[in-house]
């Protein structure tokens, strides 16, 4: 079943167009990785899907519904989550507070305020009160046991690998259908990269489909079902991860021989 589909996306920053018609799709239960050289538009693609950039042309659909240009807040409510490449935690908040922020869109206000803009508090059965959010945070942290003793530490005081875990945990708070991850391995030691990737596989096992942008193409393809290779804002190759790993052209150009 097609969960997320981007068709012929054109997007960029201001006047500068970076994506010149990129298409991709994500089926349910899949891990799809987007690889390619620097400046290929990998991050731009994921940001455009998540509504952080507005596409000039093209369409994004989620479960068959058009979500092109919808603001991130609405997409989070729909069931998407996004982990940026760097600065992906709130450093002055504790780990627990970071997780609480991950669920803030579904927080039912104890006072029914007319200006409370968390839409559909009446319609959505998935709204949570504070104690439910706490319980969900404890549940989520079970996936990341090494964060458990650090719930009350400030996220800014944690190591890079731990911060990446906090960012993943924060995005898992609402149990999203799709997790969009931008370069989870950036700036991490090789040992930590393996750990982060194994967490991503675990997250995928729990029923969340994953779109992952990666520099580290070999390791990313090793855990992915399918891969897309972008170059200068266009689709270059796509296919099953195993085939891409064995494709000699791809290996020579993008996997470092």
């Amino acid at each position: 079943m097609i969960l997320l589909e981007a068709q012929n996306l054109h997007s960029g920053y201001g006047e500068m167009e970076i994506l010149h018609g990129v298409s991709m799709r994500l089926d349910s239960q899949e891990i799809v990785t987007i690889i390619g050289p620097n400046g290929a538009g990998k991050s731009t693609l994921i940001k455009t899907i998540f509504g952080l950039l507005r596409p000039t042309a093209g369409q994004v659909t989620f479960k068959g519904l058009d979500i092109t240009g919808k603001p991130p807040r609405d997409l989070v409510l729909d069931g998407l989550a996004y982990v940026p490449q760097s600065n992906n935690t709130f450093p002055s908040l504790t780990v627990l507070e970071n997780l609480e922020m991950g669920a803030i869109t579904r927080r039912a206000s104890p006072i029914p305020m007319p200006w409370n803009r968390s839409r559909g508090s009446a319609t959505s059965p998935r709204m949570m009160n504070d104690s439910q959010i706490r319980r969900r945070a404890i549940e989520t942290i079970a996936l990341f046991p090494n964060l458990r003793p650090k719930l009350r530490e400030r996220a800014g005081n944690l190591s890079g690998g731990e911060q990446q875990m906090v960012a993943l945990a924060k995005s898992m708070m609402l149990d999203p259908d799709i997790l969009l991850i931008d370069e989870p391995s950036a700036g991490l030691a090789p040992k930590l990269v393996d750990m982060v990737f194994s967490k991503i596989v675990e997250i995928n096992g729990s029923g969340t489909s994953v779109v992952m942008v990666e520099q580290n193409a070999k390791k990313a393809l090793a855990i992915a079902n399918r891969g897309y290779i972008l170059e200068t804002g266009r689709n270059r190759y796509e296919g099953a991860a195993k085939e891409l790993l064995q494709n000699t052209d791809v290996a020579k150009l993008y996997l470092g021989g």
């Binding site: 998540f50 450093p91 002055s92």
Partner: peptide, 15 residues
């Protein structure tokens, strides 16, 4: 506090 820390991330989180 989250917004003061990082406005872009706050938006992406859905705050």
């Amino acid at each position: 506090r989250a917004t003061a820390d990082n406005l872009e991330l706050a938006k992406a989180t859905g705050i």
